[in-house]
């Protein structure tokens, strides 16, 4: 019953255009929820609204029963509401270890820098970056940077983790490893909301899906039924194709990639 995170009628306008419009949903502890939608649907904006990067134009955000609508990002992360950035945001000239230690020290509330480094080592081990601990973050390859981003947010000891396209730009072997990693994170009791374009990932991980289109939440529920929802098919393929799709009444595009996903 008790929702960990509750988003209640949240909207955000950019110069009159609604990037997110009256979105409501809840996350219950231990879930992995997928947030999908075409490019520009408002997914990143929604994450920004939940984590205090942006202030909602209307609506409220509740975390563990407290109204956190007006929080700043640093407060969100100290509360246990962590996120990764779609475009990775490392501290470029710091070492990988220092990057993760920053998460442990500030967001995770480690008592000292020494303790923060110990915690950081633990999470570098977890994501498999231990050998690179002393390298500067700037020198990492994209897959490693994505892992660094993960380790950094995990070191904050989050209760809820919002992952914004952590798999974009990875090849299929790397994606397999990433899915495994996310599963292990969930096994540690972290509630996860996953923004993802790859249906393969969504279907293999998520208990539940939310679909955003033009800023509105057009469907939610278990992955199979959401994928079969005509409104969702229409959102992804346009109305013309949706009609054809329905006639053919083919199996839901479960294993296919969603259109419009070729980007980082």
């Amino acid at each position: 019953m008790s929702a960990l995170l509750r988003v209640d009628g949240v909207s955000r306008y950019f110069g009159g255009v609604a990037a997110v419009s009256k979105v409501s949903f809840e996350l219950t502890p231990g879930e992995i929820v997928g947030l999908i939608g075409p490019n520009g649907a408002g997914k990143t904006t929604l994450v920004n609204l939940v984590t205090g990067v942006l202030r909602p134009s209307a609506g409220r955000v509740w975390f563990e029963g407290a109204d956190v609508t007006a929080q700043r990002p640093w407060q969100a992360s100290r509360r246990g509401l962590a996120r990764t950035f779609q475009i990775v945001q490392p501290f470029p000239q710091m070492t990988v270890l220092e990057n993760v230690a920053a998460g442990a020290l500030f967001g995770g509330g480690a008592a000292s820098r020494a303790e923060a480094e110990d915690i950081a080592m633990e999470f570098l081990e977890f994501v498999g970056l231990t050998p690179l601990a002393g390298r500067s973050a700037m020198s990492l390859t994209l897959p490693s940077r994505k892992r660094l981003e993960l380790a950094k947010s995990l070191a904050m000891r989050p209760k809820v983790l919002l992952l914004d396209e952590v798999n974009a730009g990875l090849n299929s072997a790397e994606i397999g490893a990433a899915i495994e990693l996310i599963r292990q994170i969930a096994a540690r009791g972290v509630t996860i909301m996953l923004i993802e374009h790859l249906m393969k990932v969504v279907f293999s991980l998520c208990d539940r899906l939310l679909v955003l289109h033009h800023g509105e939440l057009i469907a939610q529920g278990d992955p199979r039924s959401v994928a079969a929802d005509p409104a969702v098919v229409k959102a992804y393929l346009g109305s013309k194709y949706a009609a054809q799709e329905q006639q053919a009444s083919a199996a839901p595009a479960g294993t296919a990639q969603a259109p419009g996903e070729q980007h980082e």
């Binding site: 490392p90 920053a102 020290l105 500030f106």
Partner: peptide, 26 residues
């Protein structure tokens, strides 16, 4: 240089948004 504040300042210097996100009261 050794303090928590100093570490936070270096984070701000490197990437202010990331510092905010990581829990530094920028």
């Amino acid at each position: 240089d050794r303090s928590r504040l100093g570490f936070g300042l270096r984070c701000v210097q490197q990437n202010e948004d990331a510092a905010d996100m990581v829990g530094v009261n920028v």
